[in-house]
Every structure is written in structure tokens, then in C-alpha cells.
Simulated scan of single mutants.
Amino acid sequence: MSKDNKSKIKQLARQIKNNPGDSFSKFALGLEFRKNGEFKKARILFEDILSSDPDYVGVYYHLGKLYEALDRLTDAKELYNDGIEVAQTQSETRTEMELKEALNQVEIEIEQRTN
């Protein structure tokens, strides 16, 4: 992990400590952890956002991808479906399309594994 990356993580962690309900900072920190291969830390942050701020539409895609990386395909599929509903409610067309594509890919993967 680069010095710059460590600094970014420390800064985001400080922001969260000062404002525990800051979904944006939690999301950014989760992305940094995921980028560094720290999947457990990223998952904990993303799941926390999901439970405390279920309208934070960006978390559905990234937590779903993390579930896929952890071989939790059924969880990813459920998450993508939930995210599509949230995106539709918020008229987030681009996010909805990304979630539908991710859902399609994970359904293909699940089908291939069952055949």
C-alpha cells in the first residue's frame, strides 16, 4: 500500500470517526479497502451503509461485486435486485442499467454452476 493510499485511508477514517453517519466517507473508505484487497473491511463498511442508509444506491453494485469476489453469488443476486428497485425509485437510470447488467452476469454464473 502506498504512502498516499495510507494517508487517504487515515483521512477517511478520521472523517467517519467525527461523523459516524457519513455514508459517503464510509463508501469511499470501503472502495479504498477493496482496492487494497482488504475485502473483509470493505464488506463491513458496505454492509453498514446498506443497513443504516439503504437509499445509498451506489453501495448495491459495489457490495454485490464484493459478494461475487467472495463467491457469495446468491447474496450478490439478491443485492442487485434490491438495488435495481432503489435505483428505479430514485430515477437513477445509469445505476439501474449497471445493476441489471451485473444481475444478468451473476445469473449466468449461477446457471453455469448448476449445470
Rank of each mutant, 00 (worst) to 15 (best):
M1G: 13
S2Y: 02
S2N: 14
K3D: 11
K6M: 03
S7F: 00
S7P: 03
K8I: 06
I9L: 04
L12P: 01
R14F: 00
Q15F: 03
Q15A: 09
I16D: 00
K17W: 01
K17I: 01
N18H: 09
N18R: 04
N18Y: 01
N18Q: 14
N19W: 01
N19A: 08
P20R: 07
P20D: 04
G21H: 10
D22N: 14
D22E: 08
F24G: 08
K26Q: 11
F27T: 02
L29F: 03
G30C: 02
F33P: 00
K35Y: 07
N36T: 06
G37T: 00
G37M: 00
K40M: 08
K40S: 08
K40Q: 11
A42N: 00
R43K: 15
R43C: 08
L45K: 00
E47Y: 02
I49R: 01
I49E: 04
L50H: 09
L50W: 05
L50S: 08
D53Q: 13
D55A: 12
V59T: 13
Y61A: 09
H62A: 01
L63W: 02
G64S: 09
L66M: 04
E68Y: 02
A69F: 07
A69E: 14
L70S: 13
D71F: 12
R72A: 11
R72P: 05
L73D: 11
L73K: 15
L73I: 06
T74M: 14
D75L: 10
A76E: 06
A76Q: 00
A76C: 05
K77T: 04
E78C: 10
L79M: 02
L79E: 04
Y80F: 11
N81M: 13
E85G: 08
V86G: 05
V86Y: 05
V86C: 07
A87M: 06
T89S: 15
Q90W: 03
S91C: 10
E92I: 03
E92M: 12
T93C: 10
T93I: 12
R94Q: 13
T95P: 04
T95G: 09
T95W: 13
E96H: 05
E98V: 09
E98I: 10
L99T: 06
L99N: 04
K100G: 07
A102E: 05
L103C: 07
N104S: 14
N104H: 15
V106M: 06
E107W: 03
I108L: 11
E109H: 12
I110R: 02
E111V: 06
E111H: 12
Q112N: 14
Q112W: 10
Q112V: 11
R113S: 12
T114W: 10
T114G: 09
N115K: 14
N115Y: 12
N115S: 12
